[in-house]
Simulated scan of single mutants.
Amino acid sequence: MLGLEYFSFAAKWTPLFMAFMLLVTAGYFLVIGPLSSRFEGSAPVSFGRKTLFVSGMFMFYLAQGGPINLLGHTMFSFHMVSMALSYLVAVPLLILGIPVWLWRAIDKANPFKRLAFLARPIVAAVVFNGLFSFYHFPAIHDFVMLNFWVHRLYFLILFIASLLMWWAIIQPIPEKDKTTGLIKMAYIFLNMVLLTPACALIIFSSEPMYATYSDPAIWAKAMGYCVPGDTSFLLTQFGGPEFFGYLDPVIDQRVGGIIMKFFQEIIFASMLAYVFFHWYKRENQEDDPLPSEIPPGNLNQA
């Protein structure tokens, strides 16, 4: 299926990364369970919150270490699915899956408080969308894909930038949530706009932009992230990435751009509707007078 049958279990599932993600998940349950009494204000964590965290971990693993990661090295459309799941789906799930009392403890022990300005809404939006767009410049993308440690470092920085961007929207510590509903809505809309130029460039390009998906030699080298050992056999066995592509490279590229924009629009539009609903509800509650505030002579009118 999609060429996955040609690759080993290790190439498709990345056992070391799987073990790391399972270890982090086990640490989460250890902290919110047996070790929770060590944290001030700790309380039992609901099943729903646990489900959100596990779902976030699963989505991130699937995108960065599972079959989607492998397919993202053969087809650009799957690369964009991987990016969307990693930074637009997994990150907010992880934020929501961590209980408030644990976030307070993390915030209290945070050694990077001098960098708090990076979490300001406009800064966080510009940094994340700027890094994401910069990564998808053809020369930058191909360079990152061919240099293992640069790849890992860039994706780590992009993860942190995504965390800061979502932090400004969700803000899991209630007493620190000073942003009004209108400002949050404007911030969400800003995020929707900032990613548009990069997606448009990819969608409307009339030729393949990335050598990783069009040059067999560069593709084989980039596959070293997924396939252990010498990857030169891929050239003799498959010829190049077109062996796995069910779409023309330009069409695949356009589909990738559409997928990213679709994910972004759906997720941010949902957040926009959620924030608007709660803002509207709160504004109406503040405007409606309580019964005790209505003058006695106006009770019948009220």
Results as ranks from 00 to 15, higher is better:
Phe159Ile: 07
Met1Trp: 10
Arg282Thr: 11
Leu190Trp: 02
Ala90Leu: 03
His79Ile: 04
Tyr135Gln: 13
Val255Phe: 03
Phe58Tyr: 09
Gly240Leu: 06
Ser205Pro: 00
Asn284Trp: 12
Lys221Gly: 08
Trp101Lys: 09
Ala43Tyr: 08
Asn129Ile: 03
Phe268Cys: 00
Thr236His: 13
Val227Gly: 05
Met59Leu: 15
Val255Trp: 01
Arg120Ser: 06
Glu265Phe: 15
Phe137Met: 11
Glu175Gln: 08
Met57Gly: 09
Val89Asn: 01
Ile259Tyr: 01
Arg120Thr: 05
Leu195Lys: 10
Ile173His: 03
Leu93Cys: 06
Phe159Val: 04
Val31Asp: 04
Gln285His: 14
Ile294Ser: 01
Leu247His: 01
Pro241Cys: 12
Ile251Pro: 04
Gly97Glu: 03
Asp142Ile: 05
Ala19Cys: 10
Phe277Val: 02
Leu35Arg: 03
Ser77Ile: 01
Phe244Lys: 00
Phe204His: 04
Gly41Arg: 05
Met185Tyr: 00
Lys221Leu: 14
Ala10Thr: 15
Ala19Trp: 13
Gln301Thr: 14
Phe263Leu: 00
Ala105Tyr: 07
Pro34Cys: 12
Pro121Leu: 04
Val123Glu: 10
Ala269Val: 12
Thr14Pro: 06
Gly245Phe: 09
Leu182Cys: 10
Met80Ile: 02
Tyr61Asn: 02
Asn300His: 14
Ile203Asn: 05
Phe58Trp: 11
His141Ala: 14
Ser206Ile: 03
Val24Glu: 01
Ala217Asn: 13
Pro67Cys: 04
Leu158Phe: 11
Glu265Met: 14
Glu293Ser: 05
Val81Leu: 05
Met57Arg: 11
Val24Pro: 08
Ser82Val: 01
Ala63Gln: 02
Phe132Gln: 04
Pro197Val: 07
Asp288Lys: 13
Tyr28Gly: 07
Asn300Lys: 15
Lys281His: 10
Leu164Tyr: 11
Gly41Leu: 06
Pro228Asp: 11
Thr179Val: 15
Ala26Gln: 09
